[in-house]
């Protein structure tokens, strides 16, 4: 009867800047998660690691539904996590939704995620 997934609240939509991102205080399998909000209030969550060399995507410039990695300027499409050609690679996307101004993301339950590790952690 235990569900495989669970929705976790990560706070109000207003906490995330438009055309910006926040990193979460926990991750999946020690990988950090980034939550993005576009100019038109679309929301995306992805593992905060660039498929190139693990750069923190949450620090990039958000344009439309893409983010440009701050380290070497790869452009990642947030809707599927895939790098825009000619670059190749992808980062994992995580389901996300807003209910009454509160944001939830869907976490796989068997991966509690400790929030440790990943770029930016020493």
């Amino acid at each position: 009867m235990t569900p495989k997934q669970e929705w976790r609240s990560i706070g109000p939509l207003s906490a995330i800047p438009q055309r910006g991102a926040r990193r979460l205080g926990f991750g999946i399998d020690t990988k950090p998660i980034a939550v993005f909000r576009t100019a038109t209030d679309q929301l995306f969550a992805v593992i905060d690691e660039c498929p190139h060399r693990g750069g923190p995507l949450s620090e990039g410039i958000v344009c439309g539904t893409t983010v440009t990695c701050p380290l070497h300027h790869w452009v990642i499409d947030l809707s599927d996590g895939v790098a825009v050609p000619p670059d190749e690679g992808a980062t994992m996307t995580i389901p996300i939704r807003v209910i009454d101004g509160e944001v939830f993301i869907e976490m796989p339950r068997h991966m509690p995620g400790t929030g440790q590790g990943g770029a930016g952690e020493r």
Partner: peptide, 20 residues
Amino acid sequence: DPQSRYVNERVHANIQKDGT
């Protein structure tokens, strides 16, 4: 517009290759 600045200028520090 902070969202139109490269990370270094937005955060007022230089990002390093490991994200610190």
